[in-house]
Design a binder for these strands. Structure first.
Lengths: 233, 233
DNA sequence: AGACCGGAAAGGTAACACCATTTCATGTCT
DNA sequence: AGACATGAAATGGTGTTACCTTTCCGGTCT
């Protein structure tokens, strides 16, 4: 049941195409656009063009100056944590770079998130985490890759959200994108390694028991496989 | 030196006040606004009200539905990494919570960023980092707190940017805000501890020498002080 | 070179037609 | 009478157009 029945949304397409064009480099840093140009290119009114532009501006992707137009800004200025920006970069040729930096981000965040979850998770969260780890073992041994991935995504999302740190929680979406991206690219072993199954259970157990240091360490070991698999030396 | 931006755009004030009101809880989740209300409250035209609202919408702070109005969304949906959102939360009563989660984020990110910088930093960056560490020792021993803080900010910013991971680099601003906030709140020792001075130099040296693991470990030790000083158990 | 001016483009206002959604009153069926 | 369907009216965002105002780039005149 897809909730997203929003029929209209006339500047979302504009925003999306422009954002993608910038993220992909088709509109490089320094390129100057005009509202008139946008109006014409998309066949929309000035209002719609301006609203899309404002949003891009708030993401740091363009600046707008009178008499000169709308200028594309360097990537250093972008809000690279904005889900839309992440999505655009994943959809374009910057995809590998984005996957790499997101993976590095995971390596940094998830161990601490696991530790925090051991301190802050609610009862139901701890229980669900344990159940998910068990399910992962079952699916892993059955080599059901598709279902394994979905449970794995759920495991990591729940852990981030249960950390009690909303900044960690906000990374749940991007992390899910990385996990899905990795299997789609065939970067995962055909059958999850036993060690990974053990470690998921170790993380869940440590969180359930409130052992923060153990949870952090187990997550670090779990991610070690990711580190060697996808990052350079 | 305050950068007196443009002759002040007209929706920035609107955006700022609404964003702050939402972030501070003055406009709680579920509260419904209307464009007419915003127009009247700020004495601006519909266009301006709409553009501010679009930006808030792109930050996940409100949704706009026909016939019903503009609804404030729960914090789970906000783009909590957006610099404006961070700023608003720091400016309101959520300030302590925001400082806490940002600090936790630092603990996660900076060690990995140091390691990455050891691999990726340019020559000048390594040199500057080393120089900054030396300057920090001088200022620390002279107990020049204000200047120490500024160099410290510069040290951490440079390190994040030199990591070669633009997502780490994008955190330079917020991290600077935390560092400045900590001293302004008197959470820093009156004279920086010697161990901290040693560790800044250790980080710089490891980065300069390209020793990633050592840089990561040194940064972790450097942050241990922060961890105990500001986080619970 | 320095001052000056024309025009390009964004900033902002206003008025309007349109359309989705909710609300509510009305009427019919049981 | 009470429940349910039906349809109309009120409400408030969506999108368009027209028209000023402000800024400031670039060329021109002295």
């Amino acid at each position: 049941m897809i909730e997203r029945r929003n029929p209209t949304g006339l500047h979302d397409p504009v925003l999306d195409e422009l954002g993608l064009a910038i993220a992909s480099g088709a509109l490089p840093e320094g390129r100057v656009l005009t509202l008139d140009g946008i109006q014409e290119r998309f066949g929309v009114s000035r209002t719609v063009a301006r609203e899309a532009m404002r949003v891009l501006e708030s993401m740091g992707m363009v600046t707008s100056r009178r008499r000169v137009g709308i200028t594309v800004r360097p990537m250093d200025d972008w809000n690279v944590f904005d889900p839309k920006v992440i999505w655009w970069r994943l959809a374009g040729p910057g995809r590998d770079a984005q996957l790499r930096t997101l993976t590095e981000l995971r390596l940094a965040i998830e161990p601490l998130a696991a530790g925090a979850a051991a301190r802050a998770a609610t009862g139901p969260e701890r229980a669900r985490l344990t159940a998910l780890a068990a399910e992962l073992r079952r699916l892993g041994e059955a080599a059901d890759l598709a279902e394994f991935m979905e449970r794995d995504v759920e495991f990591h999302e729940l852990l981030l959200r249960a950390s009690g740190n909303e900044m960690f929680g906000a990374l749940a979406g991007p992390v899910a994108a990385v996990l899905r991206g990795r299997t789609r690219l065939g970067l995962m072993p055909h059958q999850p390694v036993r060690a990974a199954l053990d470690l998921h259970e170790a993380v869940a157990a440590a969180v359930a028991a409130g052992r923060a240091a153990a949870a952090e360490e187990a997550m670090r070991e779990l991610l070690a496989e990711v580190r060697t698999a996808t990052l350079p030396g």
